[in-house]
């Protein structure tokens, strides 16, 4: 079931077009990463979904109901952290949560899940950057929303908090909560997201699964053998692309081909002295996609 549907969304500020014909759907219970360079339009998409901006054309539906700047009733089932945490500095963390929470039990639950008990009764104005960020995330999660929109949620968080948040997001997604997360910390997004939307200059240039995205990246093997010359001609004859002969660097497209390659060499009595296998990573894949795409 689709929880969020964005169709032909266009957003301009004066004569400047920020979003061009943005369309995508998000299924319930998935974690979707929204990535792209600074100024690509990620926060604008999120703000449009949240009814904070008045878009020029297109439609946005949350759980099948249209939402817009004028009428955004479906947002009751959406939690969000956009740009920076919106907090009242003169209120305690607890009061900030209580102000927007539907029940005290929800506040207690989110405080415990995010390990905020030690400082939740202090004024939010006295919090560190990381504490404020956690409180902002808690505000997004406090009413157990069906859809959570998080813009750079890892900002300012210490490694333990990043790990805790990752675990919590995964757990909530398993229970049916959908996440749309924008982050420049690609290593974290790689661990979290099921799908990825890549945006550049206000246009979606990729909407794919994380697995596919990672498979786009060149997998290559660097080999040191007992006879590099013989190994070179063997792998070239077998159809592999060799980019360097010393050390022998072979590009392969699928990870299961590593085993085939190794058995080919051993069948021909070539001993493998050293092997380095480069798996795909999101950063490399994303940079490749962004460089390839001329918008």
């Amino acid at each position: 079931m689709k929880i969020l549907s964005v169709n032909n969304l266009n957003q301009s500020f004066g004569s400047r077009h920020v979003l061009n014909d943005i369309s995508f759907d998000i299924k319930s219970g998935t974690i979707v990463g929204l990535v792209g360079p600074n100024g690509a339009g990620k926060s604008t998409i999120m703000k449009d979904i949240l009814g904070l901006l008045d878009y020029q054309s297109g439609t946005i539906t949350v759980a099948g109901t249209n939402t817009s700047f004028q009428d955004h009733r479906p947002l009751k089932q959406v939690g969000a952290l956009i740009e920076y945490p919106g907090l009242y500095p003169f209120l305690t963390g607890w009061d900030n949560l209580k102000l927007f929470a539907t029940s005290k039990a929800n506040v207690e639950k989110v405080v415990s899940e995010l390990h905020m008990s030690s400082y939740i009764k202090k004024r939010a104005g006295h919090y560190s950057l990381g504490m404020k960020q956690k409180l902002g995330i808690a505000l997004a999660l406090v009413n157990e929303p069906n859809l959570v929109i998080l813009d750079e949620p890892m900002n300012g968080l210490d490694p333990q908090s990043v790990k805790d948040l990752r675990v919590l997001i995964k757990q909530m997604a398993e229970n049916g909560t959908t996440f749309l997360i924008s982050s420049h910390i690609l290593s974290e997004l790689e661990k979290l997201a099921d799908d990825l939307i890549v945006i550049k200059k206000g246009r979606i240039i990729q909407h794919t699964s994380m697995e596919e995205m990672l498979n786009r990246d060149s997998h290559f093997i660097i080999l040191k053998t007992s006879d590099d010359r013989a190994a070179n001609s063997l792998v070239v004859n077998a159809g592999y692309q060799v980019t360097a002969s010393q050390p022998l660097t072979i590009i392969e497209s699928k990870s299961d081909e590593v085993a085939k390659l190794l058995s080919l060499l051993s069948e021909n009595d070539i001993e493998i002295i050293d092997l380095q296998h480069n798996e795909g990573n999101l950063e490399h894949s994303l940079l490749t996609v962004l460089a390839e795409e001329k918008v």
Binding site: G51, D71, H72, G86, Y88, F100, L139
Partner: peptide, 17 residues
């Protein structure tokens, strides 16, 4: 102005239509 200075207007708008 505090709602815009502190960014809390985002919660208010989301919660109240």
């Amino acid at each position: 102005t505090m709602e815009f200075e502190h960014g809390t207007i985002k919660h208010m708008i989301a919660q109240h239509n």
